[in-house]
Amino acid sequence: MNHEDFSMNIILHAGNAKGYLHESLQLAKNGEFEQIDSKIKQATEELLNAHKIQTKFIQEDAEETMENIPVILVHAQDHLMTVMSEKQLIIELIEMYRKQHDMNLKLDMLLEQDSPTLR
């Protein structure tokens, strides 16, 4: 596989992962937590695929060193690393949304117990 193919496949899988991560964040924002775990799992699988391609490229490059590093490869690496960082931040944000959602539910229950007429 040439460096353009490697690069485009890394970008493809990293982009898919980013899409799943942002879908999961939107679900959390809307209080829809049922599908989040499967979206995070899909994102993780996509990142793993991108990482495997990256590793294969590095192994092949070690055998026949490239004289010049193509810009598309630099872009692919940047894209992959950015999405990997986003994953960690999005997981933290989802947990914050989950805690906020749980606290809101508890608060609603307390308010209903104290004064049903306020609602």
Rank of each mutant, 00 (worst) to 15 (best):
N2I: 14
N2C: 11
H3V: 15
E4F: 14
F6W: 00
S7R: 12
S7H: 02
M8Q: 12
M8R: 07
M8H: 08
N9H: 08
N9V: 05
N9I: 10
L12T: 14
L12N: 06
H13W: 11
A14M: 02
G15S: 03
N16W: 07
A17V: 03
A17F: 02
K18T: 09
G19A: 02
Y20H: 05
Y20G: 03
L21V: 00
L21A: 04
L21C: 05
L21G: 02
E23H: 06
E23V: 03
E23G: 01
E23Q: 08
S24Y: 00
S24L: 01
S24I: 01
Q26K: 11
A28S: 00
A28R: 00
K29Q: 05
K29L: 04
N30M: 15
G31H: 05
G31K: 06
E32F: 14
F33Y: 05
F33T: 01
E34P: 04
Q35L: 13
I36W: 00
I36S: 00
S38H: 14
K41I: 10
K41C: 09
K41G: 08
K41E: 10
K41T: 09
K41N: 01
Q42M: 03
A43H: 03
A43I: 04
T44R: 01
T44F: 09
E45T: 15
L47A: 00
L47N: 02
L47V: 08
L48Y: 12
N49P: 07
A50S: 02
A50P: 01
H51T: 06
I53R: 04
I53E: 00
Q54A: 12
K56N: 09
K56H: 09
I58S: 10
D61G: 14
D61S: 15
D61N: 14
D61M: 15
D61C: 15
E63I: 08
T65R: 04
M66P: 13
M66S: 15
E67N: 08
E67R: 07
E67G: 14
P70H: 05
L73Y: 02
V74E: 02
A76R: 00
M81N: 13
M81S: 08
T82C: 06
T82S: 10
V83C: 09
M84V: 12
M84H: 15
S85K: 13
E86C: 07
E86S: 08
E86G: 03
K87P: 06
K87A: 12
K87Y: 10
Q88L: 14
L89K: 12
I90S: 03
I90T: 01
I91Y: 00
E92V: 13
E92Q: 14
L93P: 05
M96V: 07
Y97P: 06
R98M: 11
K99M: 05
Q100M: 14
Q100G: 15
D102Y: 15
M103H: 13
M103L: 11
L105F: 13
K106Y: 13
K106M: 12
L107H: 07
D108H: 15
D108R: 15
L110M: 06
L111F: 13
Q113A: 14
D114Q: 08
S115V: 11
P116I: 12
T117R: 14
T117W: 09
R119W: 09
